[in-house]
Write a protein that binds this DNA or RNA. Structure first.
Length: 599
RNA sequence: GGCCCCGUGGUGUAGCGGUCCAACACGCCGCCCUGUCAAGGCGGAGAUCGGCAGUUCGAAUCUGCUCGGGGUCGCCA
């Protein structure tokens, strides 16, 4: 038996007990004849006292101890001397008077201290992840992730869902992201692909009569990484039969309010979750995943400035571009240095630049504003009337700072919505204790793909158009809205879903519009279409990023912090040094020859 | 693929043309120390400043390339 309780457990009520603890040496404070050791495990810290007079052997051995050695200590729980209590520790009222010490294992000097506030390079942390994860914050994140999964699993079970695992080794269905592939030994030249999501499998389960499916599904996408994107991530994947869009949204609202309530009861979750049309989200926020905890909506100035006489605006407007702005309230006193930083920010979001427009706080209303009250690089290119009209359209007044971005519509929307998020953070406009979920609905079914010069599915090819839009598939595919929905939380996209197509004619129309040949359709979707010939129930579902919701619940800004063994931006695991080369023998078995290795 | 930021003992930083065979804190090693909890005191070891090439009388410092890390645009149905 290694221990009677964990290191964080002993309390005043345990005084007088003889107990054994096991854990890591967190810190040693050696006073000569008296040595203190903080012994640590996942549950916390306990102070152990080694006294030369009363436990000579143990005290001598304690002198050898070093950080992160693994030890076992037996002793009596004792109340601390008056004045020696440590109110910062849950165990701080007591200490263990050691009588016996066993060294269970030694440790090399750790590369960094096991403390929450140490600032260590990400790569070093990942290389020594086993040390990194000993930090209380990381353990807390792992525990939170477990609790979230547990909460979701219970809720789904209670709501009639069946948890079903689906294959990791399956087939490439080139569509969307790049696949990770696995060569087949038995079938030379053939490859499995790891699932980007279990999309077709869960639909097959609906045809199989499962009725309600869910899974914590590992999904693999060979695309570039971001703070919120890893090459493999976990989705709460679900699918339901005999449902309409609103039925799915109801389940999601219940699931997410329950998860938050059970894991972060201190947070406020406004319900019901509002629904916002995609078009409205783009118009008001320039984004399909707006943070609705604060206003600062994005104004559209294109029409106001399209005939303003200012060539830059006119040419952008006539080319179909957009001129949009947000208002930073009370920020007219921003210095050149501050606005330059914002310009750099929007450039990093892909925009050409940013035009600041300061409105003096020395007037009482917009009507009184003269050219002298406006500070902006465009002041001399536009009439006072136009400048005022712009301010009015954006809702800017005296003392405010307008931030204007111009260019192609999509570029402007990306940049200005990112800028809105950044200003929201700088001005602390969003309450961190409020979790504002939002359903974005009525997404277009198709988006124009310039590269392929054709229509592409916005979500995926099985997403159903709204019934009232079906006839538009022939005449005007671009305006067809789908039974497509996203769940968004505080500016973060948590997941997407849809009601699926089960009508053969509609499905063929969609394939045709996207430009899939019958051969491609058979190759990629044959199995599902065949299943659909045998009685597919109406169904729909969703895939939701688990890592992202845990990240938000943990108050972290990077999903690496809530994944036990994540990868670097170059998709490398520094601990395993993965990916790595394989032996010639392995290559031979797989009938693979590496061309241009290392290049 | 593009853009931005970072790379100096184990860790985190300072130094930004010569006064640097590199400074500070923590950590590490040794000695002392019976009430500390970021223990304390004294002493010590530890870095060819990511790599390569160049500019210069002289490079941690300037330039180019390159490698690694982070952020981001594209990409991610």
């Amino acid at each position: 038996m290694y221990r009677d309780m964990t290191c964080g457990e002993p309390r005043g009520t345990d005084v007088g007990k003889i107990i054994t603890l096991s854990g890591w040496v967190h810190r040693r404070r050696d006073h000569g004849g008296l040595t203190f050791i903080d012994i640590r495990d996942f549950s916390g810290l306990m102070q152990v006292v080694f006294n030369e007079d009363t436990a000579t052997d143990a005290h001598a051995l304690a002198g050898d101890l070093r950080s992160e050695w693994v030890i076992q200590v037996k002793g009596a729980v004792q109340e601390r001397r008056p004045g020696a209590e440590n109110p910062d520790l849950p165990t701080g009222a007591v200490e263990l008077i050691a009588s016996e010490l066993t060294i269970l294992n030694r440790s090399s000097t750790p590369p960094f201290e096991v403390e929450d506030d140490v600032n260590v390079a990400d790569e070093t942390r990942l290389r020594y992840r086993f040390v990194d994860l000993r930090r209380p914050r990381m353990y807390k994140n792992l525990k939170l992730r477990h609790d979230v999964i547990q909460s979701a699993r219970t809720y789904m079970t209670n709501t009639g869902f069946l948890e079903i695992e689906t294959p990791i080794l399956l087939k490439s269905t080139p569509e969307g992201a790049r696949d990770y592939v696995v060569p087949s030994r038995v079938h030379p030249g053939s490859f499995y692909a790891l699932p980007q999501s279990p999309q077709q499998l869960k639909q097959l389960l609906m045809v199989s009569g499962v009725d309600r499916y869910f899974q914590f599904a590992h999904c693999f996408r060979d695309e570039d990484l971001r703070a919120d994107r890893q090459p493999e991530h976990t989705q709460i994947d679900l699918e339901m039969s005999f449902v309409e869009q609103e039925d799915v949204l109801q389940v999601l609202e219940g699931l997410y309010t329950t998860m938050v309530r059970e894991t972060r009861p201190d947070l406020e979750v406004p319900t019901p979750f509002p629904r916002m049309a995609y078009a409205e989200a783009i118009e008001r926020y320039g984004s399909d995943k707006p943070d609705i905890r604060f206003g600062m909506e994005v104004a559209r100035l294109t029409e106001i400035v399209s005939d303003s006489g200012f060539g830059v605006f006119e040419s952008i407007a006539s080319a179909g571009g957009a001129i949009r702005a947000i208002v930073a309230p009370g920020c007219a006193d921003y210095t050149r240095r501050q606005t330059d930083a914002l310009i750099e920010f929007v450039k990093s979001s892909g925009a050409q630049g940013l035009i600041p427009m300061h409105i003096s706080p020395d007037v009482t209303s917009l009507e009184e504003v003269t050219l002298d009250d406006i500070r902006s690089p465009i002041r001399n290119h536009l009439s006072l009337e136009t400048l005022k009209a712009m301010a009015e359209a954006a809702g800017a007044g005296p003392g405010d700072l307008m931030l204007i971005v111009a260019g192609p519509e999509s570029v402007v929307n990306t940049a200005i919505s990112n800028l809105r998020g950044e200003m929201g953070r700088r001005l602390e406009l969003a309450d961190p204790n409020v979790f504002s979920f939002l359903f974005v609905v009525d997404f277009p079914l198709f988006e124009w793909d310039d590269d392929r010069d054709g229509w592409a599915a916005m979500h995926h090819v099985f997403s159903s158009p709204r019934p009232e839009d079906v006839e538009l598939l022939d005449s005007d595919p671009g305006v067809v809205l789908g039974q497509l929905y996203d769940l968004v939380l505080n500016g973060v996209e948590l997941g997407s879903g849809s009601i699926r197509i089960i009508d053969r004619a509609v499905q063929e129309k969609v394939f045709e519009l996207i430009g899939h040949s019958p051969e491609q359709v058979e190759e990629r979707f044959g199995q599902l279409l065949r299943a659909f010939e045998y009685g597919a129930p109406p169904h729909g579902g969703m895939g939701l990023g688990l890592d992202r919701i845990v990240m938000l619940l943990a108050g972290e800004e990077n999903i690496r912090e809530v994944i036990a063994f994540p990868k670097t931006q170059a998709a490398v695991d520094p601990l395993f040094d993965a990916p790595g080369v394989i032996t010639d023998e392995q290559l031979r078995e797989l009938s693979i020859r590496v061309v241009n290795p290392g290049g």
